Simulated assay, not measured.
Amino acid sequence: MSADTILGFFVQATNKHDFNLDITLNVNGALVSGTTISAQEYFEELSEAFEDGNEISKKISEQLVQASEEAETNTNESASFIHLKSTKVYCGDSKSTPSKGNILWRGKLSDIDGFFLGKIAESKSSSSTSSSK
């Protein structure tokens, strides 16, 4: 299955020009909602999560920094992955998973079934119904 060319265009704009876009993706029935970030930014932020740990964590952090540098130099290649920050995943009518934190997400463009622009907003209270009679 091939990736959507419009979505690929958005990812290329993000990778080459630090263009950020609020977007919601349909992936195998789940909705993934967040803000696009470049592959370079994704790897940089991910590496920060490992840099203060033990030897293994530090090694992982170094590898992610290297991946970030490679992503910066490979902006002319066509993108295969989309990267999101502040991500929420929705399955059915349930609340988002995860519910807290700035979650980074990486997905294969060829696995995305559809998308719409904008993020899904969390409702402040689930019992905010109004009755007008």
Rank of each mutant, 00 (worst) to 15 (best):
A121G: 02
S2W: 04
D18Y: 14
E45Y: 08
S128T: 09
S126G: 03
E69R: 14
T129S: 13
N102I: 00
D93Q: 06
S61D: 09
E51K: 12
K95H: 04
S130A: 05
L25S: 08
N74H: 02
M1Q: 07
Y90H: 09
S126I: 10
G107I: 02
K133A: 06
I6V: 10
S110F: 05
S96M: 02
D113L: 00
I120W: 07
K119V: 10
T35Q: 15
A30W: 03
L64D: 00
E62L: 04
G107M: 00
I120V: 14
S96P: 12
L7F: 00
S33F: 06
V11I: 05
A49T: 11
N74T: 01
N20P: 00
T75Y: 05
D18C: 03
D52I: 04
S86M: 06
I112H: 08
V27Q: 06
N102D: 15
T24K: 08
N74P: 01
A79C: 12
G92F: 11
N26Y: 05
S96W: 00
L25I: 04
E77G: 08
L104P: 05
S33P: 03
F116L: 11
E55R: 12
T36W: 02
I37P: 10
C91P: 00
S80N: 14
W105Y: 15
D113I: 02
E69Y: 07
S130N: 05
H83F: 15
A71Y: 12
E72Y: 13
A71W: 14
I112P: 10
D111E: 15
K88R: 14
W105G: 04
K100G: 02
S68D: 10
E62W: 01
K95L: 11
A71V: 14
S33Y: 01
S130M: 07
N26P: 00
F9P: 00
S99C: 01
E41K: 15
Y42G: 02
D52Y: 11
S57I: 00
K58R: 11
L117Y: 13
I112Q: 11
F19N: 11
H17S: 15
E41L: 08
A30N: 10
H17C: 09
A30H: 12
I60F: 07
T87N: 08
N76M: 08
V27N: 07
T75F: 03
N26I: 09
V27L: 05
I23G: 06
S94D: 13
T24A: 09
N26A: 11
K85P: 07
S47Y: 11
T97A: 03
G101E: 03
N74A: 13
S38R: 09
P98C: 04
T75G: 06
G8E: 13
N20Q: 12
D18L: 02
K95I: 05
F81P: 06
S130T: 12
D22K: 09
S125A: 03
F19E: 12
S96R: 03
S131M: 05
H83T: 15
S38T: 13
F9A: 15
Q12D: 12
S86F: 11
A13K: 13
S125E: 04
